[in-house]
Design a protein around this nucleic acid. Structure first.
Length: 302
DNA sequence: CGCTTTTGACCTGCGC
DNA sequence: GCGCAGGTCAAAAGCG
C-alpha cells in the first residue's frame, strides 16, 4: 500500500533474523529451540497480519478524513446555500459566511444600514454549528444524547418536515455557556438521532467518561443531511457532509494483551506513533485534547 | 422540597 | 398585513 505497509514487513523480517542469528551463534539447536522458533515465527507472522489489517483500516479512515477535509474546504468557499424557506442567510449559514466574510457579497448602498446590523448580529452569532448523528436502539423513544455535557431541556416542537418531535436543549454545565442543542430523530431512520450543536462550550467537559457511552456515532459538520445514508447520497450532489461510522473498527480484532513480546510491542507502538504523529490532523487533535486536560487540571486544583 | 421535564402560549422572522 | 413555522418562555406536572 505505502511506506507503512512495507515497514511492517521489515519488522517481521528483522525479528526472524534476530532469532535465527541466535540459533547460529549458539550450540547445536535442540528440538525445543526449533519448536520455539517455529512458534515465534508463526506468532510473528500472525502479528504482522494483524498490523497490516490495522493499518489498512487506519488508512481507510485517514482517506475518509482527507476527503472530508477537502470537501469542506471546497464547499466553504464555493457553496451556494440552497434556498431555504425560513431564516435569514446570516443565521442560516453563520459558519460558512463567517469564513467568506459576507461583506463583499453585496454592494447595495441602500441596504448598508441593514447589512451593518446583520453583520453585527453575525459577529455575535458567529457560532460554530455542527451536526452529530447518534445511532440508538429503535425502541429507545427518548431524545437524550449522552455526549458528556449536561443539558437542560427547554422546549419541544413538532416540525413540519419531520413527524418526530424536536427537542431543544441548553448547556447546563455553566451558566455562562450559551451552547444550544437540537435533537430530532431522522426522517429516514428512526433509530438515528440528529443532534445539532450551536456555539462552543466555554468550559471543559464535565464527564469525558460517559461520552460515546454505548452509542454508535456518526459525525459531520455544517451539512443538513438527515441520516448517514442520506448524507452520503446527498454528499455526491451538493452537501458537504461526510459520515464516519466508527463501529467499523470493531471488525478489527487486535487484542493487545496477546502481544507478549516486548520487541514486537515496542515496534508496534513506534510504528503507530510515527504514523500518527506524521498525520497533522492527529497532531492537532492531540494538542487540543492535551490543552483541554491541562485546563481541566488547573480548574480542579483551584 | 427542589430539580427536571412537559407542554401550551407567545415571540419572531419570512413568504405571499 | 396576515398566516405559517421555528424557536423560546414559563407555569404546571412529575420525580427522587
Amino acid at each position: 500500500m505505502d511506506q507503512y505497509s512495507s515497514s511492517l514487513v521489515d519488522t517481521s523480517l528483522d525479528l526472524t533474523i534476530g532469532v535465527t542469528r541466535m540459533r547460529v551463534e549458539e550450540d547445536p539447536p535442540t528440538s525445543a529451540l526449533v519448536e520455539e522458533l517455529k512458534r515465534v515465527s508463526a506468532e510473528n507472522k500472525k502479528l504482522s497480519e494483524m498490523l497490516t489489517l490495522m493499518y489498512d483500516n487506519y488508512n481507510v479512515l485517514r482517506k475518509q478524513l482527507m476527503e472530508y477535509v477537502n470537501k469542506s474546504n471546497i464547499t466553504e468557499r464555493d457553496q451556494i446555500s440552497p434556498p431555504k424557506k425560513r431564516k435569514s442567510p446570516a443565521r442560516e449559514d453563520a459558519f460558512s459566511s463567517a469564513v467568506i466574510g459576507g461583506v463583499s457579497e453585496s454592494s447595495s448602498t441602500d441596504q448598508d444600514e441593514y447589512l451593518c446590523k446583520k453583520q453585527r448580529e453575525e459577529t455575535v452569532v458567529k457560532e460554530k454549528v455542527s451536526r452529530v448523528y447518534y445511532k440508538t436502539e429503535a425502541s429507545d423513544t427518548t431524545l437524550v444524547v449522552k455526549d458528556g455535557y449536561q443539558w437542560r431541556k427547554y422546549g419541544q416542537k413538532v416540525t413540519r418536515d419531520n413527524p418526530s418531535p424536536r427537542a431543544y436543549f441548553k448547556c447546563a454545565c455553566a451558566p455562562s455557556c450559551s451552547v444550544k442543542k437540537k435533537v430530532q430523530r431522522s426522517v429516514e431512520d428512526q433509530s438515528v438521532l440528529v443532534a445539532t450543536y450551536e456555539g462552543e462550550h466555554n468550559h471543559p467537559m464535565p464527564s469525558q467518561i460517559d461520552s460515546n457511552n454505548g452509542l454508535n456515532r456518526y459525525i459531520s459538520h455544517g451539512g443538513s443531511a438527515s441520516t448517514p445514508a442520506a448524507a452520503n447520497r446527498r454528499n455526491s450532489l451538493t452537501e458537504p457532509v461526510t459520515t464516519v461510522d466508527l463501529t467499523e473498527s470493531k471488525k478489527v480484532t487486535s487484542p493487545t494483551s496477546r502481544i507478549d513480546f516486548p520487541e514486537v510491542h515496542k515496534l508496534l507502538v513506534e510504528q503507530m506513533a510515527s504514523s500518527l504523529t506524521n498525520d497533522p490532523n492527529f497532531t492537532a487533535a492531540l494538542a487540543a485534547a492535551v490543552t483541554g486536560k491541562l485546563y481541566q487540571q488547573n480548574h480542579t486544583e483551584k
